[in-house]
């Protein structure tokens, strides 16, 4: 239900955003446009944080949840004031290219490798790199997001970190090009493995009344941690960007209050995000 409301809010934002710009400049003064990833939006974290941000700073946050790739692109195209994303390498490039400034780490969540309960490739209990190698050798079905999202980038970096050639045209390697939930569903249909963020998996588990066809096979490996950062869009590149609001928002997120709020956020009773800002004030 929470998720449902979040969706409507997002749709509303997209539909009416131009109206706000045109008609209500007063309200627009304190409105912050954020481009973020589907994971923060779908889990309901932003919905949960929004009233606290408004209370503390007076800022109304509007956001578009999309893949990290598109979120960064939105920053590049000056369609957002601030970004909340999780692809460190791409983020650093983004900042180096001058599109963003003041990148600050906020929190992390973690990824899990999920697969059929029967674990056909027998990778349970192995470390991540051995597991990926085994999947490759046995040609066990593996479904990739394949949509240039943060999760997809994370998966690609895992193959690289394990010194494996990232598969492309192999018949067992399915590049879905879709969101996390459809990708998990596809893995279930194909009896294959996939890399998922924990939040989506918790939901998937709940959707299947605790008897999901896919179970967590690997978790906790250091490679599977996922760092989120907040980046302000560079006002020198984008004169329309509201950098003061973006800065205020970032400050709050890495501040004591924001960090505590993130740690207190629970999805179906489980903590999803671990706050880890460099110096909480």
């Amino acid at each position: 239900m929470k998720n449902f409301t979040a969706h409507w809010k997002r749709i509303g934002t997209i539909l009416f955003f131009p109206l706000f710009l045109a008609g209500n400049s007063q309200a627009a003064d304190k409105e912050l446009m954020m481009a973020t990833t589907t994971s923060t939006d779908d889990t309901g974290l932003l919905e949960y944080l929004a009233p606290m941000v408004t209370k503390a700073t007076g800022i109304t946050v509007k956001w578009v949840g999309t893949g990290t790739g598109k979120a960064l692109k939105m920053g590049e195209d000056c369609n957002a004031d601030v970004l909340l994303v999780h692809a460190p390498a791409a983020e650093k490039k983004f900042v180096e290219a001058g599109f963003g400034i003041n990148r600050r780490e906020v929190m992390y969540n973690d990824f899990v490798v999920i697969g059929p309960n029967a674990d056909p490739a027998a990778i349970k209990g192995k470390d991540l790199c051995t597991a990926l190698k085994t999947i490759t050798d046995k040609k066990a079905a593996f479904v990739s997001r394949g949509d240039d999202s943060g999760t997809h980038k994370m998966e690609l970096s895992l193959w690289k970190d394990c010194a494996l050639q990232a598969p492309d045209k192999e018949s067992w390697y399915l590049q879905a090009g879709q969101g996390m939930m459809p990708t998990i569903t596809m893995a279930a249909e194909r009896g294959g493995y996939t890399l998922a963020d924990r939040g989506t998996y918790i939901k998937y588990e709940a959707d299947n009344q605790g008897k999901p066809p896919l179970a967590i096979i690997l978790e906790g490996d250091k490679h599977l941690l996922n760092q989120y950062s907040v980046i302000e869009v560079n006002p020198q590149k984008c004169p329309n960007a509201k950098n003061d609001l973006a800065r205020q928002y970032g400050d709050w997120m890495v501040g004591k209050e924001g960090q505590a709020a993130i740690g207190g956020f629970k999805l179906l009773g489980k903590q999803l995000f671990t706050p880890n800002a460099a110096a909480a004030k």
Binding site: T66, G67, G69, K70, L72, K73, M74, G146, D147, D148, D168, K169, S171, L174, Q175, A176, G177, Q178, P182, M186
Partner: peptide
């Protein structure tokens, strides 16, 4: 399912590329 090299058609590819900002 928009699987690359397998079931990705022109229309699903367009949907995906737009999502990726490509």
């Amino acid at each position: 399912g928009n699987i690359k090299w397998q079931t990705r058609t022109i229309t699903t590819a367009i949907a995906l590329e737009t999502n990726k900002g490509q």
